[in-house]
């Protein structure tokens, strides 16, 4: 909890009265920028400060300097990054700072500190930055150059469908270094129309992990909805299917199928009716929702 919050709480009764005394951004940044202050104190100041989000403001420049200076302690730089990222939500006011912020982040993206690297690459990737994408792809192709773990790189590349990551994701999905990496590679591919057969196979494979099958359901529903609806119906009828997958399939049918077609699908209505009476709790719940929606 910030100091601001605590002090305000104590003066709750006097809400309409004067605002509680707070340290100004300037004094907070003076503490944050001073090497004489302790790390904890500097981090606390940066956590408390509200930057004016304009390059007219010397405090913003100070925060940028801290972030870009690799002699500063990593915790302090992380706190500066958070304060700047918060300010970046004020898009109009922040526009003049944006260029310098992005350039600083590119520098930080290759910093020795892993947390800083990941955070910087995160901001850049969400802004579809070509530099970050290039670095992330390089790392996937050559693990020696990796700045973040494989799964993180894939997850950051998925922010931009145009990031040119499908090929490398396909490769990783077929020979994954870890379960996490495989899952992220599949998640990235779930926007790739040509991966429909892969997801169909995974969805139907009962030996697959639950997460992977769930993800495959969402992916197939996204890139080949008709095919998925057909498969989902089959899964609902399969007595040996896992309850999780059955519930997911039934939910997709409930929410996204053509209601008219459903109302005339006698066998399905019968099947769901029986599931709503007797099935594991999660399936039963979805089946009941289905029945309230479509029962005549």
């Amino acid at each position: 909890m910030s100091k601001k919050g605590k002090s305000a709480k104590s003066s709750k009764s006097a809400r309409k009265a004067k605002a509680p005394a707070r340290r100004t951004a300037r004094s907070l940044m003076a503490v944050a920028a001073s090497a004489k202050s302790g790390v904890k104190e500097r981090v606390a100041s940066l956590n408390e400060v509200t930057l004016a989000a304009s390059d007219q403001d010397a405090n913003v420049t100070r925060a940028l300097d801290i972030l870009g200076n690799d002699n500063e302690p990593a915790e302090v730089r992380m706190a500066a990054l958070e304060a700047l990222q918060t300010a970046s939500f004020s898009v109009v006011a922040f526009a003049p700072v944006r260029g310098e912020y992005l350039a600083t982040l590119r520098k930080v993206a290759t910093d020795p500190n892993a947390e800083l690297r990941e955070s910087a690459l995160g901001v850049l990737a969400r802004n579809k930055d070509g530099f970050a994408q290039q670095k992330l792809l390089e790392g996937l192709q050559d693990p020696g150059k990796a700045l973040v773990p494989t799964e993180t790189a894939l997850s950051l590349l998925s922010f931009d469908p145009h990031a040119d990551a499908y090929n490398v994701a396909r490769r990783i999905a077929s020979a994954p270094p870890s379960d996490d990496a495989r899952q992220e590679a599949l998640r990235l591919l779930s926007a790739d129309a040509t991966s429909a057969p892969l997801f169909e196979k995974l969805l139907l494979d009962k030996s697959e992990k639950r997460e992977v099958r769930q993800l495959s359901a969402a992916a197939l529903h996204s890139i080949a909805p008709k095919k998925f609806q057909k498969r989902a119906r089959e899964l609902v009828f399969d007595p040996s299917e896992y309850p999780d997958i059955q519930a997911t399939s039934l939910a997709a049918i409930t929410n996204f199928s053509d209601p008219e077609a459903l109302a005339n699908d006698e066998p399905l209505l019968k099947r769901v009716d029986s599931l709503s009476e007797k099935s594991p709790a999660k399936v039963k719940q979805v089946a009941r929702r289905f029945m309230t929606k479509f029962k005549r």
Partner: peptide
Amino acid sequence: EEPVSFERYGEYALSQ
């Protein structure tokens, strides 16, 4: 707006 570098092919600017 962001800094760009025209010095070498494919280079991204790391400073202002």
